[in-house]
């Protein structure tokens, strides 16, 4: 078993005035390669803070994180930016596509940021877009695409540079049930690759069935590590 991320005794506090608020308490968890892991829990339980820390966007107060074999805590900020660019893919709830760019240009963004020539980056982005059902839509700007299509562009952007860990924040929250299922089918397939891990933060109980594992959070703590069916049964007692 190889790990995308191993988190040990992670704590996070935010200063508020003269005091500080502790939002993560002694988190210990792992994200495994070849798995689709979901992080679930009520709003304000610390899910967003946790994925921000795992992806090197936020710093920790204490604890250790091994991310893809690298000590994230010891990594300098500018190295974290480059590390994210090379190894992580992001899918956001609101897509965050640039409205002035075409689908292909949006999807090519990580490659362009890494200095890949425009032509090569766009070519690769078009291939990925075609693979996830966006054939014929690659030159359209986001405003001409449906919500589901925009999320596919965001998925292509997360995959284009072949990252090892893909982090998704509520990827189906803005989509209808059918479109959400289609997006989850794609993410499920990505997670089947043994050299990749997918971590999804979600509230959407319709997509729990796509997970390999579900980590439940409450009040800044991980309170359970479930198989999807167990978690679904727990949530919907007969």
């Amino acid at each position: 078993m190889t790990y995308a991320a191993r988190i040990q005794h992670l704590n996070k506090e935010f200063p508020v005035g003269d005091e500080s608020i502790k939002v993560l308490h002694d988190i210990t968890a792992d994200i495994r390669m070849g798995e689709l892991t979901m992080l679930v829990g009520p709003s304000g339980c610390g899910k967003t803070t946790l994925i921000s820390i795992i992806t090197g966007i936020l710093s920790t107060t204490s604890g250790d994180i091994d991310l893809l074999g690298h000590d994230l805590i010891a990594m300098k900020d500018h190295k974290k930016v480059v590390f994210r660019r090379e190894n992580l893919g992001f899918i956001f709830q609101q897509y965050n596509l640039l409205p002035a760019l075409t689908a292909a240009e949006n999807a090519a963004m990580p490659l362009l940021a890494a200095g890949v020539p425009n032509k090569d980056a766009l070519q690769k982005a078009r291939i990925i877009l075609d693979d996830i059902g966006m054939k014929g839509q690659t030159e359209k700007p986001p405003r001409q695409l449906s919500g589901g299509q925009q999320q596919r562009v965001a998925i292509a952007r997360a995959l284009v540079h072949n990252p090892k860990l893909i982090v998704c924040d509520e990827p189906t929250a803005a989509l209808d049930a059918k479109t959400g299922q289609a997006v989850m089918e794609i993410l499920r397939e990505i997670a089947n690759d043994q050299n990749r891990a997918v971590l999804i933060v979600t509230h959407d109980n319709r997509i729990y069935k796509y997970a390999d594992r579900i980590l439940e959070m409450s009040d800044g703590r991980i309170i359970g590590d479930f198989k999807p069916q167990d978690f679904i049964n727990k949530e919907q007692p007969s």
Binding site: T55, V82, M109, R157
Partner: peptide, 18 residues
Amino acid sequence: ENLKQFGAMKAIGVTNGQ
């Protein structure tokens, strides 16, 4: 108005220099 887009760029690894 493009703050979220700039944020997304920073998240996916676009540096301040870029």
